[in-house]
Structures are given as structure tokens and as C-alpha cells.
């Protein structure tokens, strides 16, 4: 089984109501877009996740894209556009 750690930050963390989770990926979920679809399928406050505008993703602390592959033990983070400085 392929388990990944998922982190949520800022407004997105508040929206989904949690900051961190471990998730076993079912066979067939192999990239960021697949994970997003899986999360959105939870429904409720998760529903809009796959269609959120400007959602950013990092895999192992590097910026990632929808087609970035996921491997066992990866740290995946979802967050809004950054606003530091």
C-alpha cells in the first residue's frame, strides 16, 4: 500500500478543518490530480477541492503540478497562493 502524508495550510486548512493526515492511496491514484479527485470525492467541505482556483501543491517541499507523480512516503502539501514578505 502506498501511504502519503498530506498537509493543508492557511485558508485551505480552515476550509477542510484539518492540518495534516496520513492517507493510503488506492491503486490507480498515482499523481497529484488523482489525489485531489480522491479528496474531493469525500464530498461536503472537500467537494470543491479539485476545482479550487489557484490551489498550489508541493510534493516533498518542492512545488508540484497536477501530473507530478506520488510515491509511498511522499509529503504532499496543498495551500493557497503565498502572501509573505
Amino acid at each position: 500500500m502506498k501511504t502519503v502524508k498530506i498537509l493543508y495550510f492557511a485558508g485551505l486548512r480552515e476550509r477542510v478543518g484539518q492540518g495534516c493526515e496520513q492517507l493510503e492511496l488506492p491503486a490507480g491514484v498515482s499523481d497529484v490530480a488523482g489525489l485531489l479527485a480522491l479528496l474531493a470525492a469525500r464530498g461536503g467541505r472537500w467537494q470543491g477541492l479539485a476545482t479550487i482556483r489557484n490551489l498550489r501543491c508541493a510534493v516533498n517541499q518542492e512545488m508540484a503540478r497536477p501530473d507530478s507523480p506520488l510515491r509511498a512516503g511522499d509529503e504532499v502539501a496543498f495551500f493557497p497562493p503565498v502572501t509573505g514578505g
Partner: peptide, 13 residues
């Protein structure tokens, strides 16, 4: 500074 504003993961509330 310009890159920090768009690439470093900070968020202001």
C-alpha cells in the same frame, strides 16, 4: 524580495 513574495510559503491572516 520579488521571488519571496510569490514562491516562499508564507500566508498572512
Amino acid at each position: 524580495m520579488d521571488y519571496l513574495k510569490t514562491r516562499a510559503p508564507f500566508w498572512k491572516r
